[in-house]
Structure formats: structure tokens, C-alpha cells
Computed example of a mutant assay.
Amino acid sequence: MINQMSQNVLITGGTGFIGKYLTQVLLANNFTVSILSRTPRKSSGLITYYQWNPERDYIEEDAILNADYIIHLAGEGIVEKRWTAKRKKSILESRTKPITLIHSLLKKHNKSLNAFISASGIGIYGANTSEQICTEDTPAANDFLGLTCQEWEKTADTIGALGIRTVKIRTGIVFGRAGGFLKKITPGFKAGFGTILGSGSQYLPWIHIEDLSQIYLKSILDTKIEGPYNAVLTDDTTQLKFSKTLANLYGYSIWLPKIPQSLLKIVLGEMSDAILKGQRVSSEKIQHTGFEFQFATLETALYDCLK
């Protein structure tokens, strides 16, 4: 057990799917946790809640002043709603404005941190499907996801410019029991109506929420970790493989026809790119730090989430 009781981690987006799980991992490793919330919440035990409203440039300043580390997870869901111009603006600003607010308060109080760790996305490599394996050095794409992630990381780098170690965790699909991607699609599969979206050949880089949380923990503890890191498995899972594996865990083979790309594009518009296209992504850089994935196969990860 790591003796870090005096160390406080402030989390934006701490009430979400990943944030809730990560909070428990941090507590288990003797950190205290502060969480920014838009609504008043009662603090309890080793969790302290502070109010904020990034759109109004408001945050309880003690949240920043008491933090040793900040983990930035806040951001509106990418595939929650159709990508109108208004929605695109909201997706971007929900990721960048909180960082700008934090940056201004750090400067105002001449406050330092041991590290600032920001979520990012493998969407930075673009909504494409190819045999290229994307590494952290792969140039960013110029589509909506690529540009959004670029701005997200560029804003995070303003914290780094203050002399604070800054880490950017580029995440793919996150598997977990309590929410996220699986919560949305498993009801249909469980009922026997699993199917394949589009051609099925698009890659689906994924990570189990336990491994993702351990990467965040390692980013706190390992002072050599800085800059971007891909947080996905390099196992070349495609949408076809994922769907067949999930159906098999529920005891059947997929019998429904594939949902055509043309139909998904009509229904979802530009947002369909996030579903119909997917890159291969390398996890080599994070593994070179000594990190080992606990859930290293699709089958073991899905089984753990469904049992």
C-alpha cells in the first residue's frame, strides 16, 4: 500500500463513469480525493466536493489551492447527440474551458501542482480505417475528432507551460460494469439481438476501466511520465470481432444482418464516423514504462464486465 494520505487529487468529471471508478482506486492507494460538481454535494470521509460552473468561469478556489494533483476528465459525450454546429462547439468547450479556468487560478495564486493529468482521445488520429498503427508521434487528423483532441491537448499544454508536469491520456472505448459503452449496447445483445455496425472491419481500440484507472494512478506516481500516452490495447479488435465475442458470451451467434453504413449515416449524420471508422492504435509507449495490462484480451475484459 502506498502511503500518500497527505496527497490530494482533484478530479473534474469525478461524478461520471470513469471518475467514480478512479476515485475508489485513488482512495484504495491512500490519496484523498476532491471532486468538482455543478450541484451541491455533501462531503464524506476522504472525498470532498466543491462546486463549479466552467461556463460561468466559477470554481470554489479552495479546490485548486488544496490540490496536489489535478485529473481532468470532464467533457460532454462524443456520441450522445447528433453533431450539429452547436453540439460540436459544446463538445469542444466542455473539454477546454475547464482547463482555461484552472490555468487562470493557478496563475492567480502562483499555485503549483505535482502533475496535471488530462484525458484525451484516440480520436486525435482521425476517423479513418486503415492498417496503419497509430503511435503518439502519428500526426493529428484534420477532421472533427482530430481537431477537437488537438485543441483539448493544446489547452492542457498551457498548464505544462507553467512548469507543471502534464500528461495526456489518449483513451479509446472504455469497458466497465457500471456504465459507458457496454451499458448502452449490452441490453440488445443480452436479449439476443446483437448485430454488426457497418462493415465490421473498422478497428475498435478498447481498454478495461481498471487498467485505465491504473494508468492514471501510474501517471501520478511515476514522475518520468509526461506528454501523450495511448491508453488502449493493441490487439486489433474490429467491430466484427467485438460483436461476435459479446454475442458468444451471451450464448448465441449473431443472426441479424449488419446495419448498413448508409443507414447509419442517414440517422446519425457526421457522427456516424465515430462508429463506422476506427484506427489501429499502439500501446507500446505506456508498456515501456513498465505498465502491464490486467485485462489483456477482449474475452477476459468482457467476461469481467458481464459476470
Rank of each mutant, 00 (worst) to 15 (best):
K154F: 08
I91P: 00
G172E: 13
T100V: 05
I122T: 14
T166H: 10
C149I: 06
K168L: 13
Q150Y: 09
E131D: 13
D137M: 09
S130G: 04
G121D: 07
G172K: 05
K89D: 08
R170F: 05
F116Q: 05
D157G: 03
I91V: 06
K154Y: 08
K88S: 00
T84N: 07
K89P: 00
K168V: 06
I102V: 09
G163S: 11
T166A: 11
G160I: 12
S90I: 00
K86P: 04
K97F: 04
S120Y: 11
C149E: 13
A115D: 12
L162G: 05
I164E: 10
L162C: 09
L145P: 03
N128R: 15
I117N: 09
A141K: 00
R165P: 14
H103G: 01
N110Q: 13
E151F: 02
S104F: 00
T166D: 12
T96A: 00
P98W: 02
E136M: 07
S94G: 01
S120N: 07
S130C: 08
F116Y: 12
R87K: 04
R170Y: 11
L101K: 02
L145R: 06
N142P: 03
I133G: 11
K168M: 15
L92N: 05
K107Q: 13
G163I: 08
P139L: 06
E131Q: 09
S94L: 02
K88H: 06
I122K: 15
G77W: 00
Y125Q: 06
H109M: 01
Y125M: 05
K168E: 15
F116M: 06
A115H: 02
K89M: 01
R82M: 02
G123N: 04
A140R: 09
K89N: 05
H103W: 07
G163F: 11
T171I: 15
L113W: 13
A85W: 01
R165F: 15
E136F: 06
L101D: 03
N114F: 03
I122Y: 14
S130T: 14
R87D: 02
I133Q: 10
S104G: 04
K168T: 11
K107N: 08
F144K: 02
D137G: 02
S94V: 02
P139S: 07
I159Y: 08
A119K: 01
I122S: 13
K107R: 09
I173F: 15
I102M: 10
L162P: 12
S118K: 06
I99N: 09
E151T: 05
R170T: 10
A127L: 03
I99K: 03
I159Q: 01
E80P: 03
K88L: 03
L92H: 04
W152Q: 06
R87A: 00
I164N: 07
L147S: 08
S130V: 07
T84L: 00
K168G: 02
I122V: 15
R170H: 12
P98A: 02
T171D: 15
S118A: 11
S112V: 04
E93L: 03
G160W: 14
G146T: 05
K81E: 12
T155C: 06
T100N: 09
S104Y: 01
I173K: 14
P98F: 03
E93K: 02
D157M: 07
I169Y: 09
L145I: 05
P139M: 05
T171Q: 15
E151Q: 14
L101Q: 04
S130H: 10
A119N: 07
T129L: 12
K154H: 12
E151D: 11
N128K: 15
K107V: 10
E131V: 00
F144G: 01
